[in-house]
């Protein structure tokens, strides 16, 4: 199982990002290998449609679960289409902290979008 977390920097001790599609990095936690890997979020510089593209990056990386601060309607629709479940984390934490919160089942699952998307 792979879990993606939007992050402001490139390691598991970084602060989580307060945006999903335009975060700097995604930290991918591989629960089978117990390892972390950072991927640069190339969708963040898109003029429009960053949400869909960001999800595609996660989908191509084989992610099963995404921990996010917020979600636009396009990103949510795309996550559902990629069979990726999403959970909302509180701000100002680190990547590791929100991951623990997820395993403690303390993060709410997102089934409707929390923000309106950007063009």
């Amino acid at each position: 199982m792979k879990i993606a977390i939007s992050s402001s920097e490139n390691n598991e001790n970084s602060k989580v990002s307060d945006r999903f599609a335009r975060s700097e990095y995604f930290i991918i936690y591989d629960h089978d290998k117990l390892s972390f890997e950072a991927i640069v979020n190339t969708a963040k510089d898109e003029g429009s449609g960053a949400g869909g593209k960001a999800v595609k990056i996660l989908g191509d990386a084989g992610v099963d679960i995404a921990l996010v601060p917020e979600l636009g309607p396009k990103a949510l629709e795309a996550l559902l289409a990629f069979d990726i479940k999403s959970y909302q984390y509180p701000r100002e934490k680190t990547v590791k902290e929100v991951l623990y919160l997820y395993f403690e089942k303390k993060l709410p699952e997102l089934l409707i979008s929390t923000s309106k998307g950007k063009h």
């Binding site: 449609g49 795309a78 289409a81």
Partner: peptide, 8 residues
């Protein structure tokens, strides 16, 4: 334009 995204 990220207008078409092939998912699973």
């Amino acid at each position: 334009f990220n207008a078409i995204i092939p998912a699973k």
